[in-house]
Design a protein around this nucleic acid. Structure first.
Lengths: 154, 154
DNA sequence: GCAAATAGTTGAAACTGTCAATCATTGATA
DNA sequence: TATCAATGATTGACAGTTTCAACTATTTGC
């Protein structure tokens, strides 16, 4: 019958909550870090996948990033208008359009990556380098377990 | 000059991205798990803090959850209309109103907590029990480093 | 007492998540 | 090969989230 709280905040034991909270903290900080470059984390993630693959279908982006296809359309429109990516038709399947980085896109990405990664480090300043590595490895396993292996242009 | 992608997806090395992605996965799943109870993670977190403290000011909620004060207003309105919390005036400071659980709120919270925690486990099924513990401890340190220690009603 | 700070509220704008419907193209199959 | 189901992209809509600015009531410091 404990009527009044006694200092036990269960949210701080809830991995789901902790994920959401720490994600919020880092996303906020990273958005600030990317603001100078005119990017937000969302568009940065699309640009990153486009640069690292050299061209990826919107469907694959949707799966990889966990976003609705309609969100990809909007993000691609935005990046395309700014000349950072192009939509090149896939000859093997004329339905799909590959989101491909332009030279300007690659250059911006290089800068953005430095900014974004620096910002992450800052958000995790309370962890040691080794602990950050452990965290990264654990999270990567959580994420990759939920994602189909990134469609390597069959 | 690597023009085409060679399988190196830098996002999967970016702790910030991994946090956001895994948070998205767990939040989605937890929202589904809470839907039966008419709750979403956001309102669950408010209810949880209210129950665990026995009564917490909206300002403290705002700090603890990392939400704008105006969001707390909306969430408190919602929970109050459903009879899950009350706003009791603080005698020591008539500006503040303590978000306090009702009996119905406490009962729903008990159910919701079980559902939410079960859902987190499910999202982290690719990790062992020990690894989940490590993850929880690391994330808790990240979060608590960014939050003032939960104002114990000075 | 009075000014500055604080707790809560309202309203607005931009961003995000989710879903249904549509069109073009592909793949399977009769 | 004609047709039908499945898939990739797009549009539009609606609820949820984030972030600000402005405002009122109250408290605190001087």
């Amino acid at each position: 019958m404990s009527q009044s709280g006694d200092g036990e905040l269960h949210l701080l034991d809830d991995v789901g909550y902790l994920l959401a909270r720490s994600s919020g903290i880092t996303v906020r900080r990273t958005n600030e870090a990317l603001a100078d470059l005119g990017l937000r984390v969302r568009q940065y993630s699309v640009l990153s996948a486009a640069c690292d693959t050299g061209g990826i279908s919107q469907r694959a982006l949707s799966d990889f990033l966990g976003l609705d296809p309609s969100q990809i359309v909007a993000l691609a429109d935005d990046l395309q208008e700014r000349g950072l990516v192009e939509r090149v038709p896939d000859e093997r399947d004329r339905r799909t359009r590959l989101i491909t980085p332009t030279e300007a896109g690659r250059q911006l990405y290089a800068q953005a990556r430095a900014a974004a990664e620096g910002s992450s480090e800052l958000s995790l300043a309370s962890l040691t380098e080794d602990e950050r590595t452990v965290l990264r490895d654990l999270l990567r396993r959580v994420v990759t377990a939920a994602v189909t292996p990134v469609a390597a242009a069959s």
